[in-house]
Amino acid sequence: MMKTAFLAFLETRINQLLKLDPVTAEALKFLDGSVIHFVCLQPDFDCYVFLDSLGVRCAGWHEGSVDATLQGPLSRFIALAADRTSSWGAIKGLDVSGDQAVLASLESVHQKMELDWEGLICEQVGPVAGHSLAEGLRLIGSTLSGSGQTLSSHAAIYLEDALKVVPCEPEVNAFNREVDSLSKAVDRLSQRLSKS
């Protein structure tokens, strides 16, 4: 269940970010129907990413064929995320296999991605919560790359903390509405005071 929860969270976040990067979203449309298998060897964790016109879908279970597989320790996936210029073959310790056309498209999408994900998270949820979330993701990355602990225990702690600081959309909207009506009330009051 923990893995399902983690993947649900990941999927929501990725799709939110894709909405803010129409160039990447458009490029991914060419990969409609592709299935990418990410296999993390250290710690042990794998997931399938399905690409379609509506965005991405992450699953922990898949019985059909896959179009591409990326396999390696977590530190290699982090290196990949940070490196937008090298070709994937140049990232030592990362095993990339599958349909060459799909891989080439993925690689090009990755290199052209405009996403400043940290900045965008901050924009979405406010600087404090946004940085905490980004910090959380980095923390997961760094602790996992050095330890043999299971992802689920880290994910549990992370989700618990992240969910505490990241308000959900209705909360943010409700808060904004309250601030709006409060500021209108203050405006009205100060107008009345200035008239009297």
Binding site: M1, T4, A5, W61, H62
Partner: peptide, 18 residues
Amino acid sequence: GVHRLWKRFTIELSAVRK
């Protein structure tokens, strides 16, 4: 809200495709 996760796992196990 956990019913969403139970259902999500059901979808994963369904192997439904195009």
